[in-house]
């Protein structure tokens, strides 16, 4: 099982896009919030949960997905949205609360919906898993070979919805893949304090379904395991559980003092950065530096344009707050 050069380039470009998107958001979010941190100030008010470092989980599986496949994501959703192909301009406008946003500015960054690519996310932990089960059920009932992927954090695996969803998907043999992104912390609480098993993949046995671990945030391994998982689900063989050890470079939210982190933890993580690792892989495959630079420039341009679009868009009117309650 190998990755084609084209796929590898797509993964690299998408990871760079995600990283650059999140880094740009760090700056945009900080505007107006100093010297005293005021969560309500600046062009992007409210909470902000960024995913820099967690790119492999999103790109590794989305590389195998089609437009018709469903993705549900949690409160830290930018990497999933970008990898699934959500409209970047309208997504960014939503995060800025603008009328041109995916949800006309009502939702903000945790609440992005793009029916074009069957993407949704939400601010309640684990609430998206049963929705993915429903999408998988719909695919089966319509006799389509579509799959549904539910991304969750490792903290969500302890919620009732996780258990209920996996049991249902298994007993109904639905094309569902649950991807647990183990970024080591549920806000401040380390996994070992909240979770009785070292790896959530052990829980797959309890549902009689295959479970796979991806170690060390490895994008290539995530790609390969996802290929098997998606094939399994698409072939009608039932759900699959994947847990990837990933890392979040930033706080749970922007402004998080991160007192729970161990010393030097971040330095050690940056040393094995997945973007750099994938770049080395591309180089070893003979992709020349100028081609890599061109890929990077292209995605950065897209991101810059999306932010520009968001900033230039207008806020919705007050009257629109009352719309879209019922048909």
């Amino acid at each position: 099982m190998s990755i084609s050069l084209e796929q590898m380039k797509w993964m690299y470009a998408t990871m760079v896009k995600i990283r650059y998107y999140e880094e740009t958001m760090v700056t945009a979010y900080a505007e107006g919030k100093s010297p005293v941190f005021n969560i309500g100030a600046g062009p992007v008010p409210g909470e902000m949960h960024l995913a820099a470092g967690q790119e492999p989980a999103a790109v590794g599986i989305c590389a195998h997905l089609r437009k018709e496949d469903t993705v549900t994501a949690p409160h830290r959703p930018h990497h999933h949205a970008i990898a699934k192909g959500v409209d970047l301009k309208r997504m960014t406008a939503e995060i800025f609360g603008k009328q041109s946003g995916l949800g006309k500015g009502k939702g903000g960054h945790m609440h992005l919906f793009d029916p074009e690519v069957k993407f949704s996310c939400g601010g309640i932990v684990a609430a998206g898993i049963p929705h993915a089960v429903g999408a998988a059920l719909a695919a089966k009932m319509k006799k389509k070979d579509w799959v549904a992927v539910a991304f969750v954090g490792e903290g969500a695996a302890n919620s009732g919805a996780f258990h209920e969803s996996l049991n249902l998907a298994a007993v109904w043999k639905l094309p569902l893949i649950v991807v647990i992104e183990d970024n080591a912390y549920g806000i401040s609480v380390p996994k070992k304090v909240s979770t009785a098993v070292a790896s959530n993949v052990e829980r797959a046995k309890g549902y009689g379904i295959p479970g796979f671990s991806v170690r060390d945030n490895d994008p290539r391994e995530m790609y390969q395991i996802s290929e098997q998982a998606v094939r399994h689900a698409r072939n009608g063989e039932g759900p699959v559980l994947i847990e990837i050890e990933t890392y979040r470079y930033l706080g749970h939210f922007q402004g998080d003092p991160e007192l729970y982190r161990e010393k030097n933890e971040l330095n050690k993580l940056h040393e094995k950065d997945p973007v750099i690792r994938l770049k080395s892989l591309l180089e070893s495959e003979g992709v020349v530096a100028s081609d890599i630079a061109q890929l990077e420039a292209q995605v950065r341009k897209e991101v810059d344009e999306a932010y520009d679009f968001a900033r230039k868009s207008e806020y919705p009117t007050i009257e629109e707050a009352l719309l879209d309650v019922f048909e």
Binding site: G40, P45, G46, G97, K98, G105, K106, G107, G108, H111, Y315, P316, T317, I318, E320, A321, L322, V325
Partner: peptide, 11 residues
Amino acid sequence: DIPAMPFNPPQ
């Protein structure tokens, strides 16, 4: 009587 508090500042 709308289902949630909108995110954007004016609303």
